[in-house]
Write a protein that binds this DNA or RNA. Structure first.
Length: 264
DNA sequence: ATGACTTCCGTAGGAAGA
């Protein structure tokens, strides 16, 4: 018998401020599991009721005051959860679980890294690189089939940004970040599901700045959000969609949700 | 463009996003 599993990931930029569009997305797309980043809420104030009402009765949180914060909400049970600190500074940027079918699902929010792409001048940039390096050490030791999703805050390919040339010195697309992400990917032979379904040079963006006068007209997008899978899991991926339409919804996040459907 | 916009916290405006 085939088991279908639809997993979504979305940097929501405040789950409380955007609870209406999260609800709309869950109703329309009906994923089994939604991984959220930038929830921006302490666990005590997480809007449980809205998710429970839509059937997402399993919820695991790793939030903090003001910034960052991740969560997994699900219609299927979530077990053996853990929260890793790849920046070694107590920021809430990861939550992982085991699913009933034995897979691991890891939800991560990689630090943005500040403005200046120089670790000497900008400590946040160094912290971002260290975060990805610690993730790589973790990834090297993985033996369980895993799905790794989230806001990686790095657009690795030339076609992952609106202008490769103009973004070479812009944090998120610098060669040093791209190289760090490539080492992470190689450490487990992670399959980039976005590019599995939309091969280069196909247009595929997940983020558009709030600062553009007309985000759709200028289309200065970047692919900062990703869904990766262990090779033996990626074989079961049957569909993938980036919900660009959500960027035009009322009170949008600057990121849009990604969805992958698996058939086991 | 030391730029534009958005959120949190808290009730002004700084910090952070990327």
């Amino acid at each position: 018998m085939t088991e279908r599993l639809k997993i979504a990931s979305w940097n929501i930029n405040s789950v409380r401020y955007r609870i209406d569009i999260v609800g709309r997305f869950l109703k329309e797309e009906a994923p089994d599991i939604l991984c959220l980043q930038e929830t921006k809420v302490v666990d005590e104030l997480f809007p449980h009721e809205a998710f429970h009402a839509l059937g997402y009765s399993h919820r695991l949180l790793h939030g903090q005051r003001m910034h960052h914060g991740v969560a997994i909400v699900s219609r299927v049970p979530l077990i053996e959860d853990d929260r890793l600190d790849w920046q070694a500074n107590q920021e809430a940027r990861h939550i992982g679980v085991r699913l009933p079918n034995g897979l691991r699902l890891e939800n991560v929010y990689v630090p943005a890294g500040g403005d200046v792409p120089d670790a000497e001048l900008n400590p946040k940039f160094g912290q971002k690189l260290a975060f990805v390096e610690r993730m790589t050490r973790w990834s090297e030791g993985l033996t369980t089939p895993t799905i790794l999703v989230g806001d990686f805050n790095i657009a690795p390919l030339e076609c992952d940004v609106w202008s490769h040339k103009q973004l070479l010195d812009v944090v998120s697309h610098t060669p040093v970040e791209v190289a760090a992400l490539a080492r992470l990917q190689a450490s487990h032979q992670w399959v980039d599901l976005g590019r599995h379904f939309v091969p280069p040079p196909g247009r595929l963006y997940t983020w558009w700045s709030y600062r553009a006068k007309d985000w759709a007209a200028s289309d200065r997008g970047r692919r900062l959000d990703h869904m990766w899978a262990s090779p033996q899991v990626a074989r079961h991926a049957v569909a993938h969609k980036v919900h660009e339409d959500c960027r035009a919804w009322l009170k949008p996040s600057d990121h849009v949700p990604l969805v992958t459907e698996f058939a086991f």
